[in-house]
């Protein structure tokens, strides 16, 4: 069974976002990693770019499929979690610890549009 954590927000494209002041980390949900299966490659070639909510910031690939990653809010991509370069399977092991990018949040009010754990869980069922 997939796990849902209520310390963070989600979007329906299955990313989570965890706020920490005016920065935030972004990853994919436990449900998403279960659906993808063995993750073998993670890429975020958008470091340094300012992206809007809904834009692609990278991709995550399993043996079978490549899946784009979407910004849950507007922000500047500050950092890619380089541990994932050598060990993409960290996402399978703990999707909520294995953040993919860190961003500077541009518009804190967008938090209103995000899903809480309960609402996100509902759309995955």
């Amino acid at each position: 069974m997939a796990e849902y954590r209520d310390d963070r927000y989600y979007v329906d494209s299955h990313e989570w976002i965890l706020f920490d002041g005016d920065t935030a980390t972004i990853g994919i949900s436990d449900f998403a990693q279960e659906e993808l299966g063995d993750i073998v490659y993670v890429e975020a070639d958008s470091v340094g770019e300012k992206l809007e909510k809904g834009e692609i910031f990278g991709s995550v690939e399993s043996v079978k499929v490549a899946s784009d990653l979407f910004m849950p809010v507007d922000g500047e991509v500050l950092e890619f979690n380089e541990d994932l370069e050598e060990e993409p399977e960290l996402i399978n092991e703990d999707a909520y610890a294995a953040w993919i990018i860190k961003i500077k949040v541009s518009d804190p009010e967008q938090i209103e549009d995000l899903l809480d754990a309960k609402k996100y869980q509902e759309i995955t069922e």
Partner: peptide, 19 residues
Amino acid sequence: KMVDFAGWEMPVQYTGIKD
């Protein structure tokens, strides 16, 4: 994990594709 394959409900994986 079951998927639709050509109109058949088939197992795509049990423990993982790599394994």
